[in-house]
């Protein structure tokens, strides 16, 4: 792992805790909502999908494109679950996402298979592979 990658992981691992700390700022303060919004919108997704080593450039675009939807999904499910059990609090909500982010950032990252290979490769030993002809339909 090179230094930039390690720094990115460290930033992602800490991002949730920074967002949590931002709740100590005055209500509605720009720094508070901007930090939290950025974390909730990109943090969990980037932590889960952060680019692997040896990926092709499109993988970076994909990570960027999918980070927000993945983050929002996880935040939505967390918030919904907390409201359903009448257990919502900002602290629990942000700690849940921050902890997820920290763990995900320290793991190797979810592989995006199409980004790891060259177009035209077929996985070896795949069930049903090898006919290779015909295309659609």
């Amino acid at each position: 792992m090179n230094r930039t990658k390690a720094q990115l992981r460290a930033v992602l691992a800490l991002s949730g805790w920074v967002a949590l700390a931002a709740t100590l700022l005055p209500a509605g303060a720009f720094l508070r909502w901007a930090t939290i919004l950025l974390f909730v919108t990109f943090g969990p997704g980037l932590a889960l999908l952060h680019p692997q080593s040896g990926v092709r450039p499109p993988a970076r675009l994909e990570t960027l494109a999918l980070a927000a939807p993945v983050s929002w999904s996880l935040a939505t499910l967390t918030a919904t679950a907390l409201f359903l059990v009448q257990g919502f609090s900002t602290t629990v909500f942000l700690i849940s996402l921050a902890a997820f982010c920290t763990v995900a950032a320290l793991l190797p990252g979810l592989p995006l298979p199409a980004a790891m290979r060259q177009a035209g490769d077929e996985p070896s030993g795949a069930a049903g592979a090898g006919t290779g002809a015909g295309g659609e339909p």
């Binding site: 909502w33 909730v40 918030a79 909500f93």
Partner: peptide, 16 residues
């Protein structure tokens, strides 16, 4: 309620 829960969570976190 998913979308509304997310927004409610953000509003609480933003303090608005």
């Amino acid at each position: 309620p998913g979308f509304f829960s997310l927004n409610a969570a953000l509003i609480k976190a933003f303090g608005v």
